[in-house]
């Protein structure tokens, strides 16, 4: 028996790798089909403008305080940190530039994305998940309403449209936070600070940030809808869906943040 046991152990190991890989590709396949179907229903009638508007208000307007506070304090911290860092090279003058570039390119979209993933992605997954387990999704079908068109398409569109607006507001608030610290605490001349902010900011900094924001908005809504729509088995299933929605959206945001940065700025 001794001679066969390493072989069986090895085969078990191979089987394990196979199972994990199959499960992974199974998931990727399901998600891809879901995404393709959702995109198809985004562009084919009937459309539900009321639902779209409601989602836009929910994602855009009601996320303003969270995103505003996050970016305000990030801008303030950024000014403080870069000032102490650059003081070592006697380059304190770069503070305004550093704040505006990091805010528009990176911190604005990423922080807003992560905050909205927690706020909106979770609530989407919980809402659609509860609708799924209480048969409300089935009820939609029996009332000749396609759940993809009524539930999912408006959320995806609202996510992709509203996140850039949120980030634009967040960028401005973040830069303003840097300005507050720069002028009141670090002793910069206000007009000088504003001039340096404008001078070194390029359109591409803002545009790349907004492209990121739109992608992140889509990802957040997609993960919320996918996990909610496929949830099973009562309260526990909905809890799991909510957690998966937030975790997967957050990770995907960071991955796509890298990919888009590479696309825009790597030469």
């Amino acid at each position: 028996m001794n001679s066969t046991s390493p072989v069986t152990a090895f085969l078990d190991f191979l089987a394990l790798i196979g199972r994990v890989l199959l499960a992974f590709f199974n998931r990727v396949g399901r998600l891809s089909t879901f995404t393709a179907l959702a995109l198809f229903h985004c562009v084919t009638p009937p459309f539900y403008p009321r639902t779209l508007l409601r989602q836009m208000v929910e994602i855009g307007y009601y996320s303003l305080p969270v995103v505003g506070l996050t970016t305000l304090f990030s801008g303030m911290v950024l000014a403080l940190q870069s000032h102490t860092g650059f003081a070592r090279f006697a380059a304190e003058g770069a503070v305004a530039t550093v704040v505006v570039i990091s805010m528009t390119r990176e911190l604005g979209p990423v922080l807003a994305g992560l905050m909205v993933a927690g706020r909106v992605g979770a609530s989407m997954a919980a809402e659609i998940g509860t609708m799924r387990v209480t048969e409300q999704v089935d009820a939609l079908s029996t009332l000749s309403t396609n759940p993809f068109k009524y539930l999912i398409a408006p959320r995806l569109l609202a996510g992709a449209l509203m996140l850039p607006l949120l980030v634009l507001v967040g960028d401005i608030i973040g830069v303003f936070g840097g300005y507050l610290i720069g002028t009141y605490k670090l002793g910069f001349n206000p007009s000088n600070y504003i001039q340096r902010t404008w001078e070194f900011m390029e359109a591409m900094d803002v545009i790349s940030g907004l492209v990121k924001a739109s992608t992140f908005g889509f990802i957040i809504a997609l993960m919320g809808c996918y996990n909610g729509y496929t949830s099973r088995g009562g309260a526990q299933g909905v809890g799991q869906a909510t957690r998966n929605a937030v975790v997967s959206a957050s990770i995907l945001i960071l991955v796509f943040n890298y990919l888009i940065t590479e696309l825009f700025f790597a030469r």
Binding site: A139, L143, T145
Partner: peptide, 24 residues
């Protein structure tokens, strides 16, 4: 008629009843 009624809890009663008429 679903077992748990499966009413849309984000909509008032009348919109639930009229859902098929309005959307469908």
């Amino acid at each position: 008629l679903f077992q748990g009624a499966a009413l849309f809890d984000s909509l008032p009663v009348w919109e639930n009843v009229a859902f098929g008429l309005i959307q469908g």
